Simulated scan of single mutants.
Amino acid sequence: MAPSTSGGVQSLQRAFDLLEGLADAGGEASLSELAGTSGLPMPTIHRLIRTLVTLGYVRQHPNRRYALGSRLIRLGENAGRQFGTWARPLLAELVDEVGETANLAVLENDEVVYVAQAPSKHSMRMFTEVGRRLLPHGTGVGKAMLSTMPPNDVRELLRRTGMPAYTPNTFQDADKLLHHLGEIAQRGYALDESEQEIGVRCIAVPVRGTAGPAAISVSGPEGRLTDAVVDRVAPIVQRIAESISETLQSHK
């Protein structure tokens, strides 16, 4: 927890700590669970949560557990669009260098959300609508993001989402996926081998230094993204991911 000051600033910090605690818990927690993770006194938590519920940033379930509220969606969507605005010139640079469609995605409420795209100039190209949501175990960007997370956190996420198959190639076993994520972490990039869409291959790299997990990718027909092309393109995707990280740091 960051150092705090007195008065209203301290209350504001504590309120954000509780929102982040709910996010870390998968979007839902009880007051006692928040007390355990935040270290705040129960009366303080109760007072702050009541205010956040009134404002719509937290909602209370009938079982008296608390969840992230709908007013956060607008904030998240606008933050994602701003992130995409900063990254779009670098995604365009990536397309110029590799010739395939480039995407930027973030992990939000256990889902991959695409926040920016630069399309390929090929007549046959991959198109993912900005704003589209998918589960992370079945996408290259999702696997890249999961590879940066502690294994226990990944298991919990998979328990919450399940592992439905997008194609016959989608990972459906948590142990096998976790082993695969270790290989991704060592290699520095993920491959989607027709796991989200048959005939499509994707190279994805995590973007470091973001508030939450994020990744960029290039995707195209597997006939164009051959093994030789992957070996050439992966370092370029890694370099652009580093440039996006540096751009984010400069906007802080």
Rank of each mutant, 00 (worst) to 15 (best):
N169T: 07
S4P: 02
A79H: 08
R224T: 07
G138T: 03
R50Y: 14
S120I: 04
G76F: 02
P89N: 07
L157Q: 10
Q60V: 04
S11V: 10
S38N: 01
L177M: 11
G140V: 00
I73R: 14
E33F: 00
T5P: 01
L191S: 10
Q82L: 15
A79G: 02
G39Q: 06
P3H: 13
M145Q: 14
K143E: 13
L48F: 02
R133T: 01
G212V: 02
H251P: 05
T226Y: 08
V154F: 11
E156Q: 08
R201H: 09
A211S: 03
M149Y: 04
E195N: 10
P43F: 07
S11R: 15
A165P: 06
V233P: 00
S4F: 03
L157N: 05
E242N: 13
S250I: 07
I240M: 01
V141D: 08
A2T: 10
L52S: 01
E33G: 07
G138I: 00
S147D: 09
P3C: 01
A241Q: 12
E242P: 00
T37G: 05
H61N: 09
T148L: 09
P151T: 06
G220K: 08
R132K: 15
G142H: 01
N152M: 07
E246I: 07
R125Q: 12
L134C: 12
L134M: 11
Q238N: 05
P164E: 12
S120Y: 09
A87I: 11
A165N: 10
A241M: 04
D24G: 07
G99H: 05
